[in-house]
Computed example of a mutant assay.
Amino acid sequence: MADIVSPDVRSRMMAGIRGKDTKPELIVRRALHARGFRYRLHARDLPGKPDLVFPKFRAVILVHGCFWHGHECHLFRWPRSRVKFWQEKISKNRNNDLVNAQKLAEAGWRRAIVWECALKGKRRIPVDTFTDQLEDWLHSGLSGIEIVAAPD
């Protein structure tokens, strides 16, 4: 199926999508801040510029968009136009995620990933539930956690 807007309009639309301060990221930030956690945002000195950095716990939280990071969930669909471009782009994002995860681990940082599907849609997790999971993880010392949408 052909795109319903011109390539120039589509390009402008895609360029307008933010990489920082997204709605899912703000949900996580507000929930943790309400529980008394303080953090740094988008630390440029760490691999991948993690969304939230907790130096006290030597931990980072990454809030991943399901489309941009190619999460195999109910929110992800491969685009039907420019298929090769999108496959390369999303593959590169996935590879960057792996490289950054390795670098963070080597530097002694623990990593949590919160997927967009856990925060929106019919299968989203209640805010208190994922906040409890993150709080428990931060205090646990475990190396990593991944928060995804509730099962069907």
Rank of each mutant, 00 (worst) to 15 (best):
F130Q: 00
A107L: 13
Q87H: 11
V99Q: 07
R111D: 03
N95M: 13
F85L: 12
G121Q: 05
R111E: 12
E88F: 07
A105N: 05
R123E: 06
V114D: 04
A101E: 09
T131H: 07
K89C: 08
A101P: 06
F130Y: 15
A101Y: 00
W86G: 05
P126K: 09
V114F: 07
R110C: 08
L98R: 15
R94S: 03
W115H: 05
A112H: 00
S91N: 14
F85M: 06
R124W: 09
R110K: 12
G108Q: 11
E116N: 07
K103R: 14
C117I: 01
Q102D: 14
L104Q: 00
Q102V: 14
L119K: 01
K89H: 11
W109Q: 03
A101V: 08
K84L: 10
L104R: 02
T131A: 15
V114Y: 04
N95C: 10
V83Y: 05
R123A: 09
R124Q: 15
G108F: 06
K120N: 13
L119P: 04
T131W: 06
K103V: 05
F85I: 11
G108H: 07
R110I: 01
Q102T: 12
F130A: 02
K84W: 09
K120W: 06
W86I: 03
N96S: 15
D97G: 00
D97N: 06
N96E: 13
N96M: 14
V127S: 09
F130G: 04
R82L: 12
C117N: 01
D128N: 14
A105T: 04
V99N: 04
W86H: 08
G108A: 10
V127E: 14
R82Y: 14
S91D: 12
R111Y: 06
Q133F: 06
W86F: 10
D128H: 08
Q133T: 15
W86V: 07
A107S: 14
E106H: 11
W115C: 03
W115A: 02
E106T: 12
K120L: 10
L119V: 02
I113S: 01
V127C: 11
N100A: 06
W109C: 00
